[in-house]
Computed example of a mutant assay.
Amino acid sequence: MTDDTFDRTRSAGYLANHMARLFAQRLHERIRPLGLAPAQFMTLLELWEEDGLTQRDLFERLDVEQATMANTLARMERDGLIERRAHATDARARTVHLTDRARDLRGPAQAAAREVNAMALGHLNGDDLDRFVSTMRSAVERLKAGEER
C-alpha cells in the first residue's frame, strides 16, 4: 500500500513557492521606503542592465503577462521612474527609459536585495551557495523550456 499523502516539507515546488513569497515580503519591507514595489524592482533590474527596452522585451524577460507589465510600467511612469519614447525603427513600439530618479535608486535597492539574500542564505558557504543557486537556475530553465525530466 502506498502513502498518497502530499508532504509539502519535501516538495520542491511548495518550498520554492513559499520561499519566493517570503523573499518578496522581506524585499518589499526594505524597498518600500524607497517608493518601490517588488514588480517595479524586477523591472528596474532589467532596465539597469539594458535601458531602452520595449514593453515586449520586459514581459518576455520577466515571464509576466503583457497586461501585468503594462500596469507596472504605468505605475512606474506615474511615479517618475521611467519615461517612454518612440522606438527608433518600429512605429508601433515605444522604448522604456530610466529617469534620473530610477538610476539613483539602483544602489539602495540592490543593497536591500543583497540584505534579503544574506538573511535567507548567509548561512551557506560559498560552494553550497553556488550549488544552490545553480540548481535553482537549472530548475527555472527547465520549467521555462517545459521539460519533464
Rank of each mutant, 00 (worst) to 15 (best):
A93D: 06
G13S: 13
R84H: 03
T89N: 03
D90E: 06
L58R: 02
A37G: 02
M136K: 02
L143S: 13
T95R: 07
R149A: 14
L73P: 07
V140S: 09
G107E: 11
M76G: 07
A139C: 06
A139T: 14
I82F: 00
L22E: 14
H123C: 08
S138V: 11
A111V: 09
W48Y: 08
L22W: 03
R8G: 00
L129Q: 10
T5F: 06
H87N: 07
I31G: 06
G126I: 08
T89R: 09
Q110T: 15
R137Y: 13
L81N: 06
N71Y: 04
L22D: 12
R84D: 03
H87G: 03
A70S: 14
L121G: 03
M76T: 07
V96F: 09
L22Y: 05
L129M: 14
T95N: 02
G13E: 13
L34W: 00
G13H: 08
T9V: 05
M69V: 03
L36V: 05
E77S: 06
L27C: 09
R8E: 10
M42Q: 11
R101Y: 01
F59E: 02
E141N: 14
D128R: 13
A120G: 12
D128Q: 12
A139G: 08
F41S: 02
E46Q: 15
A120N: 07
R131V: 14
R21N: 12
H87K: 00
G146F: 11
G107V: 07
G107D: 04
Q25D: 11
A74G: 01
Q55H: 04
T95I: 07
